[in-house]
Structures are given as C-alpha cells and as structure tokens.
Write a protein that binds this DNA or RNA. Structure first.
Lengths: 108, 108
DNA sequence: ATCACATTTCGTCATTTGTCGAAATATAAA
DNA sequence: TTTATATTTCGACAAATGACGAAATGTGAT
C-alpha cells in the first residue's frame, strides 16, 4: 500500500507531473527543468527527490550535469507512467515543446 | 491535467485508498465504512466528498442509508482502479474481510 | 407534523507540504 | 590546489490537508 501511496502522492502535484511528462521525452538536468517549470533550483531538487523516492526517476552523471530520467524497471510505475502519457493537456504539451528546444549550454 | 491530479491526490491518502478498496467489493454506507476505518463520521464524509469530486465514486439512496459505490463510466478512473485491485497489502486484505462481514443493522 | 437517525457542513486545530534564499556539498576544469 | 558551477541541504514560512466534535440538514417512519 505504501508503494502505491508514494506514487500517487508524487504524481498528485502539478510541478512533479510536468517534470515526469518532460522526462518522458528525454533525460534532463535540474537547470533545464528549472528553466521550464520556473521554480527555484531548490524546489526542483526537492520535487526530484520525491519522485526518486517513489521509484519513478533515477539519475546519472553526464559531464558536469546530473541527468534525471524515468525508471523502466518497475511494473506498477510503468503502468502509471503510461496513464500520464495519455493525458491531453495544453500545459503539458507546451512543456514538451519547450523541453525539445531547451539547451543546457545556454542556461547553465 | 487537473482531472489526473485530482485522481492522484484522492488515492494518495491511506484512508481513501482503503475506502476505494472496500468499495471494489461492494457498495457501503458511511456508517459501515466508519466501522472499519475507525475515523469519525465527519472525517469519512469528507474523504467521500474528495473521492466523489475526483469522479471515483458516486452514491445512491437505499432506504434510510446512502450507498457509496465505485463509478465505472470513466476510462481513466477504471484504469487506475484496476491498479488498486493489484495492490497486495495486509491492511487492504483485512479491510476486505471485515467489509464482507459488516452489517449496517448492527452498527447504525 | 414530529421524531429518529444517517449524513453533511462548519469551525478549529495540528501536521504536512510546497516554496524560497542562503549555505553547504560535490565535482570538473584551470 | 584553487576556482567555477551544478546540485543538495537547511531553516523558515505560508498554504493546504486531515482530523475532530458540535451543529445543521435531510429524510423515512410514527
């Protein structure tokens, strides 16, 4: 029950849902995510912590950045992420457009 | 996005998850739910309001009681409820056992 | 119409949550 | 090793949330 609750809570926040939506497109670093969501670095970092704790994302170093990306090794998480993909929403679509163009070398 | 968020928030609370789990077995009234969850009547009522507002449950009068039951007319809700059914959890299983036996005439 | 009782609403309270800026940490580059 | 910079942690704060009991509401039965 706790695993399920963590996932629901993690995806029950608009900022985190937007982050997960963007990460379904490609891995991103904190700076890039911040550029699109608009919150402070520490706030983004906190959201990522909650998503990581719910087993939804994980991270890997790439040069001087940390790339966050969706996990694909948990069946329940996969099913829920599939539902996220089916959401039809203007904000989420805008975010994807911006995420495509965002380039860390310009903003970090 | 809002519809999705409401569902996630609604199911991100242990009491509400337990309620939904029980309602997947059979319709129940506030008194019966209260008997198993243990919170006050007003607390249960509030949880039901949140679940109703997320389109997860609805209600119908039956004699002097109001029976709450899961909705089956929303595709997204159905998919999420399917995930709930797959949760393997002691507390949820206990609740189902109790829900089978609970009888409103004895407690209301 | 009144009564009994199932349910909801209201006001209040403690806890949790999302947010921020500043400070701390970590690490790649000079 | 020092510097620059990407990220996290910390402490504080306002807002949201879950809980309660009491009062209000609604409704079937007498």
């Amino acid at each position: 029950m706790n695993k399920f609750l963590k996932i629901m809570k993690a995806l029950g926040d608009p900022s985190r849902l937007r982050i997960v939506n963007m990460l379904s497109l490609k891995p991103m670093c904190v700076c890039e995510i911040r550029q699109i969501i608009g919150s402070s670095m520490s706030t983004i970092s906190n959201h990522l912590k909650i998503l990581r704790n719910a087993n939804i994302i994980t991270s890997e170093k790439e040069e001087r950045f940390i790339n966050y990306h969706l996990r694909t090794d948990d069946e329940l998480v996969n099913k829920v992420l599939h539902l996220v993909k089916d959401i039809s929403d203007k904000q989420l679509q805008k975010d994807l457009q911006k995420a495509k163009k965002v380039d860390r070398v310009n903003i970090c």
